[in-house]
Structure formats: structure tokens, C-alpha cells
Amino acid sequence: MNSGAKRFLIAAILVAAVVSAFSAQFNRYYLGVVIDIGINVILAVSLNLINGHTGQFSLGHAGFMAVGAYAAAKISIVFSDKIPAQLAPVLFVAALLSGGLLAALSGLAVGVPTLRLRGDYLAIVTLGFGEIIRVVLQNMESVGAASGLKNIPHDTNLFWAWAFAAITVFVVTSIVNSTYGRGFIAVHDDEIAASSIGVNPVRYKVTAFVFGAFFAGIAGGLYAHHKQFLSPTGFDFLKSIDIVMMVILGGMGRTAGVIVAAVLLTLLPEFLRGFAEYRMILYSLLIIVLMILRPQGLFNFKNPWRAKA
């Protein structure tokens, strides 16, 4: 199991590098979609650590993504013409990591006070957090305020998007599948029983939340250097719902399912371009169908984690 996870990581990064080397031959539109898929996999798998494995309900993933996106973009814009060209990738990765860390810090600031409270509060507080971030960005002149942040260097390519997606999958599955990580699922299943065996539920919840926010921040940075333009409206409540949909559709706590859902829900709007306005109706229908097929309730999805130790 252990070396298997590491092998997966190395193999996935190699594949990303090889495919990326040929990316000049691809249709630019398809290339863009494939990068979107990588970014959405990061968002969905990291939210799954919070909402799926640990059983919280966060609605703030777009907010953490925004923090990472704006921080990374601003760093790139400020420093890109002050460094030699061959250092550009280093600056890019440093910008991504800074964005991730800032998102993780905001995750800590939001998580520590709220995760002590009962589950439902988290949904409300994270919802509020996402909206606050959006409003703040809308009024911050240094990042373009409502007209958006332009001229972000085009640093994200297929390699970076997929390599970070692979890292996210590796980190989340490695944490959850360790003896330490059984604690996340223990907290998800029964907090009282979890604390009776020495697991501190608050600590586990905060850990999941901070890791989730970190990767949402990384995804934001990748997104910024992919689209080269950021607008606060792109990180609204509906964006968070998009990510939540991926986790629900994939089956809470099942990483493979969530990856498939992230791919599907990236492709679906592309196929349905003409019906863009109806996307939310489609999502609602999806939820209703799921509800009928899973009468035990969507947010109470329980499935045996069969770890081959």
C-alpha cells in the first residue's frame, strides 16, 4: 500500500510531463478543458477530505480558491518582470504555494472557532466567509476591484495542472489511509466513540479543513495562471456549489468516485454550452434523482472504507 501510493504519484507526474511535452499538437480548446479537469480534480478531492471523509459540510471552497488565486496572481504580476526568464517556473511554484498557504491560514482562522461548534454552523460560517472574500476582492483596488485582475502570466500548463492534481490525490489518500488517518473516518462516523479512543475530534476537523483549504488555494493559483484573468464574481456561492456537487455525485468519501465526478462535471457544461443557463436546473435534477436513489440522505452517505493494509 505504501510504496504503491508513492509509485502512483511518480507515474502520474511522469505521464503529465510526457503528455504535456506534446501539448503543442493539441487543439487549444481541448487543452484548456483538460487543464480545467486537473484543477477541478484538485478542488473536488480536497473538499472531499472535509465533506466526505471527515463528515463536515463546508460551503466555502470557492472562497479559499479565491484567496489562493488572487494571492498567487498578484505575486506573479509583481515579480515576473523583476526576475530572469529562466526563473519563471520557480516564481510560479512559489506563487502557487504562497497562495495555498494563505488559503490554509484563512482556513485555520475560519475553522478554529467554528469547528468547535456543531456541524451545521460550519455550513453557515463558510458560506459567509466565501461571500466576505468576494465582497472584499470586489472593493480592493490593488487587485482590480470589480473590473478584475488582468495580465496574469500564462504559466499553468497541462503538466502543472495534472501534477498538482496527482499530488492532491496522493496527499489525501495517504493521509486517510494511514493509521493516523483512520481518525478522520472515526470522527465522521461517531465523535463520542472517536474521543473515547483518544481521537480529538476538533483537531482532526481543523486538520482536514486546513489541508482542504490549502489545496483549494493551489487550485485557485493554477486557475489564475490558466485563465490569465480573475473576477470576484467567478468565486461566488455557485462556484462552491459546483464543487460540492462533484463530491456528492462522486459519493462522499470515495476518492475515485469524486475524481470521476469532477471529470464529468467539467465536461458536461462544455457539451451543454448552448444551455449554460440551465446548468443549475440540471444540477437540481441530479440532486433529486440522487435523493430518490439514496433515501438515507445525501449528507449521511456511509460506505465501508475497505483499506487493504
Binding site: S178, T179, Y180, V199, P304
Partner: peptide
């Protein structure tokens, strides 16, 4: 019991009390 965990993992979750291996170790492996 932890209903989404196996019999083995129910006990393993409890055994973690005496392993000081934390997040970082589970990543580096």
C-alpha cells in the same frame, strides 16, 4: 462502532493512540 470502517480498522483507529506518527509521516511514508 465506526460503521464505515472494517473490523480491523475499528481497532486500528484506537491503536493510533500510541503511535506518534502524524500527518507528515503518513505523507513521506
Amino acid at each position: 462502532l465506526f460503521s464505515s470502517l472494517t473490523v480491523f480498522d475499528n481497532v486500528r483507529a484506537a491503536a493510533q493512540l500510541h503511535c506518534e506518527r502524524r500527518v507528515i509521516n503518513s505523507l513521506w511514508r
